[in-house]
Simulated assay, not measured.
Amino acid sequence: EWIYDGTNLEELRERVSKEEAKIFNFDVRTIHWEMYLKFWVWGMMYWIMKDTYDPPDNDRQAVMFMGDGRFLSDTKFAYRTELASEIEGVSRRDTKTLVLVSQRVQEAIKAEAARTGKPVEEVSKRAQEILTQMSGDLRMPIMRTEAWFWRKIYRNFYNQILVDETGLQKVKDISRKYPIIVIPTHRSYVDFLLITYLFFHYYIPLPQIAAGDDFLNLKVINWIFRHSGAFFMRRGFGNDDLYRSIFSEYVQ
């Protein structure tokens, strides 16, 4: 809680002469609050967010500053209204339904029931649990927030990011007809973050990131990853044919 007390300021204003009052203006009613707030926003964007543009120096320039494409550019970039229909993809609920009713998974459920002697309903329940733990749940509000955040991070960390726009356009064209697989070098965790950011930027359907199931033990990271479209896989499948069938159907 912040408590402001202007008693001393008021007493000082009463004590200064008229000449001093002209030099040291204590009357907040004379402050141009619109300009004050515009300069405050500019200072935040310039010094903290590292957006680079000139500050307003008069009313006319301030209006131009507020209206040009650079003001709150990261927010405008992240919350483009036309974006969602381009990149969201199939919902988690629909994906889970398609996987569970597929012939491959249904046959695997029956085979597991026959092998273990368990009821088909019990094996089906285990299949649902496996898929729920595995599947991603991409949510656009989360992706928009991350786009806003990472745009600022990249601006501060890198001088430039070189992009093969012609190549990305080919990827975008292909993605309209066929599923695509992106295989980063994985030299760092920045790989998949940057790929997702670029897909977001160029209106390409967002990738579903394969993540190890050890991330499931990290609650916050797990939540962020899942709602960013990541799905979780075991490091090894062993002899679990049911899991293998569900995973194969899910990624296809």
Rank of each mutant, 00 (worst) to 15 (best):
127 A>V: 02
105 V>Y: 02
35 M>R: 10
12 L>F: 02
89 G>H: 09
95 T>Y: 00
144 R>W: 00
76 K>F: 14
129 E>M: 07
33 W>Y: 11
33 W>H: 07
120 V>Y: 08
118 K>C: 14
151 R>P: 11
91 S>N: 08
44 M>S: 07
148 W>A: 06
105 V>M: 06
89 G>W: 05
78 A>H: 08
94 D>W: 06
135 S>T: 04
137 D>A: 01
136 G>Q: 04
104 R>P: 11
129 E>D: 14
98 L>Q: 14
23 I>W: 00
113 A>M: 15
119 P>C: 03
96 K>L: 10
19 E>L: 03
107 E>Y: 04
75 T>W: 14
89 G>S: 08
27 D>E: 06
33 W>P: 08
81 T>Y: 14
125 K>A: 15
60 R>D: 11
140 M>A: 02
112 E>L: 09
49 M>K: 05
91 S>G: 10
90 V>A: 06
32 H>R: 13
31 I>F: 10
147 A>V: 06
41 V>W: 09
130 I>M: 15
10 E>L: 02
111 A>G: 07
56 P>I: 01
150 W>Y: 10
95 T>D: 05
56 P>S: 00
47 W>L: 12
13 R>M: 03
84 A>P: 06
63 V>M: 12
72 L>A: 06
69 G>F: 14
27 D>G: 13
97 T>R: 15
12 L>T: 01
56 P>G: 00
130 I>W: 15
147 A>K: 08
122 E>Q: 09
133 Q>R: 14
94 D>L: 11
43 G>K: 13
46 Y>D: 08
56 P>N: 00
123 V>D: 05
51 D>I: 04
72 L>M: 11
45 M>K: 03
136 G>N: 04
72 L>R: 05
116 T>L: 08
143 M>S: 04
22 K>I: 10
97 T>L: 12
142 I>T: 05
48 I>F: 08
30 T>P: 07
10 E>K: 07
92 R>P: 14
80 R>E: 12
137 D>C: 05
66 M>E: 13
53 Y>G: 00
117 G>V: 05
143 M>D: 02
100 L>E: 03
100 L>M: 13
84 A>W: 12
78 A>R: 12
28 V>L: 14
101 V>T: 12
54 D>S: 01
71 F>H: 04
136 G>W: 06
134 M>H: 08
81 T>P: 09
17 S>M: 01
43 G>W: 05
58 N>P: 08
23 I>N: 02
66 M>T: 11
91 S>D: 02
14 E>P: 00
118 K>T: 10
132 T>C: 09
9 L>I: 09
94 D>V: 04
79 Y>C: 11
132 T>W: 06
19 E>G: 01
121 E>L: 01
65 F>D: 12
79 Y>A: 09
